[in-house]
Design a protein around this nucleic acid. Structure first.
Lengths: 335, 335
DNA sequence: GTGAAAGCGCTAACAT
DNA sequence: ATGTTAGCGCTTTCAC
């Protein structure tokens, strides 16, 4: 291997490793190194294509310039868009992003956090957690590293969050449905139900109903299993065909269910639902492409990424001491 | 900071750092360390939650257990799905994935490769390259690290590739159109045209025509700029309205253009194209949801990820010496 | 079977 | 304004 290192440069230039190190790290002026020398060093580095050994540097400084991102599924457009905006901001600041998918599995999340955090592997972490409680994250060896949670709140855990206003968005959208003539609205929720995003959206759904004196709206809520959306929604639609007082709208808790629902509604079997209204939390491009008019709530996806990155960076720099929760507003898209 | 380290364990257990290190790395038996001792060590590690310092280890061994993935846009479903399958396989082998998006920009690609490769930052690299030529990758300090190129071939560069059969897939799809009654087919291509994926698909388009004695099919090819798809396709459709011999089909080179095209075709301005057929290279779920029947060619996205990961791992392990190109087959989806 | 000691390549006190 | 030196925490050779 025998790659170029400080030692070699030092010999070739006839200056010490220290001096070169200072120049490389932009501390030349701070230590009063002459401009001439600095230029010489920089030239040599460029010419010889010297690049420092990241690990030696990290070992010495205790900082890696890596940030970890842990989400449930990097192939989900919601998360990959966030990933993109995070990576963009971080890269501009000299950081690199490491990504893991948990597949909504607590055990995997644990493993991945451990792996990244273990002995200063990453300087900071951004995670959309699946956890029901905070005990794992409260362990000192984990909480030692700056973490920003996104999208979901870990129940009862005081931490740094960047989330969207799930409650308000859902409430407004359901209000809109009720205001524009809907009498009975079904709500398709996604499991696990304990996720704060799901809970808050359901709460919005219920409160919109209560405001109109409709109690026990939770009876209209149908949980759909993450792993078998297609079959469960299909079964649910069949049931609905039998109902005495029919639903005139369906409020769907996420884009994944919405996509499948729209697909199913095109079947002739469900022709009778031709006029049922569909609304969705989360706005996706698909809604612009299908005949069915789907009103929705759009989340500021890019902002989640930029806010979260900025926050970790601040935490790392020690600029931010107190735990903070950033709640980003949603926007209603009426179709 | 003062985290738990080998030194501490060594003191607490009354054995040397060497011995502990051996046990941790599974070399206990190799060095004939007694089972009792090994068990003691392992227990202590578990109990005290010791995790080795990744950087010290990497510095010493020269291996990082990081793999870099560089794509044009991690928020593109095609790439994020690949990322997901790569990450899954690598994680199971104790590797972590670092991701970067180049935004179809050679300069950024260069920076990112440099950053990752610099001084054993990653053990291997998987990249969907934007490069027109191979000189950058042929530099010794870059070519030193195992690289697998995916999706696109770097022109004239002999390297390790995992790609799909762009030529065959396009040819078959266009053949299908011609076989089922299409007389004149427009082809919407995406820039940069030099990308091997684009070139090969266009070649397939042309050859399908030639087989029927239709020469100069390249006249039907319209390049669309990556950054302004919407406006360019719109302008193109307007032009088409004027044409003497009208097109009866549009073959689109990627899903991004297809999505926008379908959106545009719904405008009343383009009502006259109601019966035009649309076909697309790349199959996306959207095609199942819209009224327009879109035939397509689907790529084995997950396989690209798993093959590529397996290949880098093999390269790293020194199992694979010769450059190899894996060409995965596409599947036609007739609608 | 086990341990001592060298050294991976870098940075930051401390000298000068 | 520049150099000397002591580690960062681990693995591995060599010695016992």
């Amino acid at each position: 291997m025998s790659k170029l290192q400080l030692e070699d440069l030092s010999r070739q230039l006839g200056v010490s490793k220290t001096l070169i190190s200072m120049v490389i790290n932009g501390k030349g002026n701070k230590y009063g190194i002459s401009q001439k020398r600095q230029a010489e060093v920089l030239d040599a580095i460029a010419e010889l294509n010297y690049t420092p050994n990241h690990f030696a540097k990290s070992l010495r400084t205790g900082r890696s310039n890596f940030i970890g991102l842990i989400v449930t599924d990097i192939s989900n457009p919601f998360y990959s868009t966030i990933a993109r905006s995070i990576e963009k901001l971080l890269f501009s600041q000299g950081f690199n992003l490491m990504v893991c998918s948990t597949e909504e599995n607590e055990e995997r999340e644990k493993q991945q956090v451990e792996m990244m955090v273990s002995r200063q592997g990453v300087d900071g972490l951004i995670v959309a957690s699946t956890f029901k409680n905070s005990s794992f994250y409260e362990q000192p060896r984990i909480s030692r590293v700056p973490i920003v949670f996104i999208d979901r709140v870990v129940p009862l855990f005081k931490a740094n969050y960047v989330i969207t206003d799930n409650y308000g968005g859902a409430r407004d959208l359901v209000n809109h449905l009720l205001d524009t003539g809907c009498r009975k609205i079904a709500c398709l929720a996604i499991t696990p139900l304990h996720l704060s995003t799901v809970e808050d959206r359901i709460k919005g759904f219920k409160d919109a109903h209560e405001r109109r004196g409709i109690k026990e709206a939770e009876k209209f809520v149908k949980p759909v299993n993450f792993t078998s959306i297609q079959s469960e929604v299909e079964a649910y639609l069949r049931e609905m065909k039998e109902a005495r007082t029919p639903y005139d709208a369906i409020f769907v808790l996420n884009n994944h269910i919405a996509t499948i629902l729209l697909k199913l509604l095109r079947k002739k079997e469900f022709r009778q639902f031709a006029n049922i209204r569909v609304a969705c939390f989360d706005d996706i491009d698909l809604f612009n492409m299908v005949t069915k008019k789907v009103s929705s709530v759009s989340q500021p996806i890019e902002d989640i990424g930029t806010s979260a990155s900025q926050l970790v960076l601040d935490l790392i720099a020690g600029k931010q001491i107190n735990k903070s929760t950033v709640v980003l507003n949603t926007k209603m898209v009426v179709r």
